[in-house]
Amino acid sequence: MEKINTMEQKFLDLVKEILEIEDRDIHLSDNFRDYDEWDSLANLSLVAILDDEFSVVIDSQRFKQMTTLQEIFDAIQQA
């Protein structure tokens, strides 16, 4: 359980870092596409960092179906 929590925290921290979110906490249930910080560079950067940090490659067709951070996190855990 502790391992999952660590992974989850690492993932959320990375998302905050990529989107430069400093003023609030984010949660797996969030729809990241609703974030004010979400744009095409954030999109590309998030996909790139998943590859760098978790060795998870999500193709663009699959990524565009995802709306919540939970869906991305599930993809990381299934990899």
Partner: peptide, 8 residues
């Protein structure tokens, strides 16, 4: 073509 932000 390969799309990647400069940071990556």
């Amino acid at each position: 073509v390969k799309v990647n932000p400069v940071a990556f």
